[in-house]
């Protein structure tokens, strides 16, 4: 049994038929072919699948797809203006905050949710904000540097 689901994905309306038990992550990846949110743990422990729902960072692997009816979902595909990438993406690139790149889309979205609410966070606030995102490559050092570089520009 499938149900009709309508929501806004990266600023565009989408309609898709989903099973009641489908996760938002599976619908994004397998039905809408939006592949930047990654399936790494599928239990809400790692943050690689994080997306923004009405501006809040959420692990999409433990979010039922049907719960985003009428809401705004954002993935990194929806960041930036035209050909211009988002300042966070630019900072992640310049500061070498992405090594293997697998956790990167999720961390960038969590950072965006933080900066949208708190444009001038302290290093401790940034560290706290991304503590739900596992990264095995970077030791988080250059990730935090990159987010702080954007935060500093806001000051």
């Amino acid at each position: 049994m499938e149900y009709a689901l309508s929501f806004s994905l990266n600023g565009k309306p989408v309609q898709v038929a989903v099973k009641a038990n489908s996760s938002l992550l599976d619908v994004l990846r397998n039905q809408l072919f939006v592949t930047s949110p990654k399936k790494s743990c599928d239990t809400g422990d790692c943050g690689a699948c994080a997306v923004l729902i009405d501006g809040e960072a959420v692990n999409s692997c433990i979010t039922l797809a049907l719960t985003v009816e009428g809401k705004k979902v954002t993935t990194v595909e929806g960041l930036g203006e035209g050909n211009q990438i988002h300042p966070l993406q630019q900072a992640f690139h310049e500061h070498y905050a992405a090594q293997c790149g697998f956790c990167t889309p999720g961390v960038i979205l969590v950072a965006k949710a933080l900066l949208d609410k708190n444009p001038k966070p302290t290093r401790e606030e940034v560290t706290q904000a991304i503590s739900g995102n596992l990264c095995r490559c970077t030791g988080y050092v250059k990730i935090i540097d990159a987010i702080m570089a954007v935060a500093e520009a806001n000051k």
């Binding site: 930047s36 990194v76 992640f92 690139h93 070498y96 992405a98 990167t104």
Partner: peptide, 16 residues
């Protein structure tokens, strides 16, 4: 990184 822009835009194609 050579592939840094791919990574930050989520366009790197992993096997999955």
């Amino acid at each position: 990184r050579y592939d840094g822009l791919q990574h930050v835009t989520g366009r790197t194609q992993f096997v999955d």
